[in-house]
Design a protein around this nucleic acid. Structure first.
Lengths: 217, 217
DNA sequence: ATTTTAACATACATATTTGTTTGTATAATT
DNA sequence: AATTATACAAACAAATATGTATGTTAAAAT
C-alpha cells in the first residue's frame, strides 16, 4: 500500500481537515486520535507516520492557517494623505467579512478560543500573543498617524482607540464564534464599527445641529 | 472515619476549591479526579460520594458562583431622573473592580472561557447564554431609557450602544483573563469605558470649541 | 530485475482514568 | 447500648487512549 508522494500528501491533508472538524466538534482534548483517523479514512498508523503525536498535529493545524493580513495593514498605513481612519475601518470590516465567509478560519479560531491550554500547548498561546501584539502595534501606529494629522477626536488617544477597537472586535468575534453564531457577524459588526469610528472622528460644528443641545447641569 | 455533618460539608467545599484550582491550572478535561482528590487531601471516594462524576462536579462549581448583579442593574434603571448613562458606566466599572479583586471569580470565568464544551457540558453553555441574554436585555432597557430622555447621542441606538458596550467588556475581560492579566484591568477598563461613554452622550456646543474644526472635504 | 524504502495497517503492550464495590470507623438514631 | 446509616478509604474491574513495534505493499532507486 505504499502510496505516491502526492497521495501521501493528500492523506496528510485529509488528516488535517479531519482533525479540524473533530477538534472543533468535540474539543481538542476530547477528540481522540482514533476519532480523527476514522474521520480521515485511515488508521492511527497514518497519523503517527505524519505527526509525532496529538500536540504535534494540533500545532501543524495551527500553522496551516495563515494569520490576518498584517502586511495589508502595514501598507495601508503607509499610504499618505488618505483617510487613515477610513482605511482602518475598511480593513476591519473586510476582516469580519472574510471570517464570516470562511468556515475553515471560523473553526480554527473557535478551536483556539475554547481549547484549554495545558503546558504542552503553551507555545500556541505564546505565538498567538505575539501575533496579537504585533497587530495591535500596527493599529496603534495607524491611529497615531491619524491623530497627528488631526483626524482623531480629542477624546481619544491612539492607544485608547486601538484598545477600544481591539476589545470590541475581540468581544464581537468571541461571542459570535462561541455562542453558535446567532447573529449576522458582518452586518452587525459593520454597524458597530461605523458607530465606533464615528466617535473616533473629530466633531465638526455642522454635526451638532442635528442633536438637541442640553444645557449643562 | 465517619465525620460530623459540618466536617462533611467542609470536605465537600474543599473538593470544590481544589477542583477550581486544578480546573483553572490544567483545564477541565486535563485535570483528573485523582488530581483533585489529592489537592483536596482526600481520595476519589470522597469525590464520588459528594458528586456523581466530573461533569457533576463541574456543574456544582459553576453553580457555586453567583452571577453578576442583575438586580442592581435592574434597580439602577428604575431610579428616576438620575443620570442613566452615568449609572450604567458606574455599574460597569464596579463590575470590573470586583472581577479584578476577586481571584475566585477570575478563575471561574477563566475556566468557563477556555474549557471545551463537549456535549455533556452543553447545559453550562446554554445557561451562560441565558444569563448573558437577560443581562444584555437589561442593559438595552437602560440605554432605551437614556435615549428616551435625550441622553443618548443620535449616533447610537439603545441596541447598538448595548452591543458596543457588551463586546468591549467581553473583549477586555477575555484578553485580560486568557492572556495572563498583563495589564491593569480596572484602570484600563475604566479609561476605555470613560471614552466610550463620552461617545454615548450627545455633543453640546461647548464641547466643539476644544476640537479643531475641519472643513468638509 | 532486485533491492530498498516510503507509507501506511495491524497488533500489542502500557499507562491512565474512570466507575463501582467493598470495607470500616464513627456519628446519629432508637 | 445496640443498631443503623453516613462519610469516606481502599481495592478492584473495565474501558480508553496512547505509543510502539511489526508486518505489508507498492513506489523508487539501483
Amino acid at each position: 500500500m505504499r502510496r505516491t508522494k502526492a497521495e501521501a500528501e493528500e492523506t496528510r491533508s485529509n488528516i488535517l481537515s479531519a482533525a479540524e472538524r473533530l477538534f472543533y466538534e468535540k474539543g481538542v482534548s476530547n477528540a481522540t486520535l482514533e476519532d480523527v483517523a476514522k474521520a480521515a479514512g485511515v488508521t492511527r498508523g497514518a497519523i503517527y507516520w505524519h505527526f509525532s503525536n496529538k500536540t504535534d498535529l494540533f500545532l501543524a493545524l495551527y500553522n496551516s492557517v495563515q494569520m490576518p493580513q498584517e502586511d495589508m495593514l502595514a501598507r495601508e498605513i503607509e499610504e499618505p494623505g488618505s483617510d487613515v481612519l477610513g482605511n482602518i475601518e475598511k480593513l476591519t470590516v473586510d476582516w469580519l467579512d472574510e471570517l464570516a465567509s470562511d468556515e475553515h478560519r471560523q473553526r480554527i479560531f473557535t478551536i483556539l478560543l475554547r481549547c484549554d491550554y495545558s503546558e504542552d500547548l503553551m507555545p500556541v498561546l505564546e505565538r498567538q500573543q505575539e501575533v496579537d501584539d504585533r497587530h495591535a502595534a500596527l493599529l496603534e501606529n495607524a491611529f497615531a498617524k491619524a491623530s497627528s494629522e488631526g483626524y482623531l477626536d480629542a477624546n481619544w488617544t491612539p492607544r485608547s482607540a486601538t484598545k477600544a477597537l481591539w476589545w470590541m472586535m475581540g468581544g464581537l468575534c468571541s461571542e459570535w464564534l462561541l455562542f453558535g453564531r446567532r447573529f449576522d457577524l458582518a452586518a452587525e459588526g459593520k454597524d458597530g464599527l461605523k458607530r465606533l469610528f464615528a466617535g473616533f472622528r473629530p466633531v465638526t460644528i455642522d454635526m451638532v445641529g442635528s442633536a438637541e443641545v442640553h444645557s449643562m447641569t
